[in-house]
């Protein structure tokens, strides 16, 4: 098969909320040589199920194969690759940036312009909390200068279809 271009895929899956299930999913992905760029898992409104969202870079055809194989796992109730469909995405970040007392106001303003909030101020830095769509997050991070970011903690992207109910039209 010809190799396509490697792009980011966001795969979302409903898993049985049981011991070992996440390991099984991660095993399958890493066993095929992929690096998981981000991963987020938590129980859903139904406590017996967990929602997992995962970002993987890879070729379309190979990713389709991975999605099919995930679907075959007995503990995986549903899977879809939503990145190719209309979707809403969100991510939460905590960013510690350098900000001396004289720079504080400017940094706070920049955060505000991006709907981010300052959650903690330290003597020469501040921690900003930001939540939002991927593009917006990237815009903000791009504005920060090299050396300005001391710490970047991200939850990984979560995703939901624009047309409602996840995985409905599989």
């Amino acid at each position: 098969m010809t190799k396509g271009n490697d792009v980011n895929h966001v795969i979302t899956a409903l898993l049985e909320n049981r011991r070992g299930v996440l390991a099984r999913v991660v095993d399958l992905i890493s066993g095929r040589g992929f690096n998981i760029l981000s991963l987020n898992v938590a129980p859903t409104h139904d406590n017996t199920l967990s929602r997992m969202t995962m970002t993987i870079k890879g070729d379309d055809h190979v990713l389709e194969q991975v999605t099919k194989q995930l679907n075959k796992l007995v503990d995986v109730v549903d899977v879809s690759d939503l990145s190719q469909k209309r979707h809403i995405s969100a991510e939460l970040l905590l960013i510690e940036v350098s900000a001396t007392p004289s720079e504080r106001a400017e940094m706070a303003k920049l955060a505000e312009l991006h709907d981010a909030t300052v959650v903690c101020v330290h003597p020469n830095s501040m921690t900003i909390q930001m939540a939002g769509e991927l593009d917006k997050v990237e815009d903000f991070l791009n504005l920060l200068q090299e050396g300005q970011v001391y710490e970047l903690i991200r939850t990984g992207v979560i995703i939901s279809p624009r047309d409602g109910t996840v995985n409905s039209e599989q």
Binding site: R19, G20, A23, R24, D27, G31, L73, V74
Partner: peptide, 16 residues
Amino acid sequence: TVGITRAVTKHNCMVR
């Protein structure tokens, strides 16, 4: 055992 045999079984599990 569950970890070791994960990749060589169609399914596996441990009784809890």
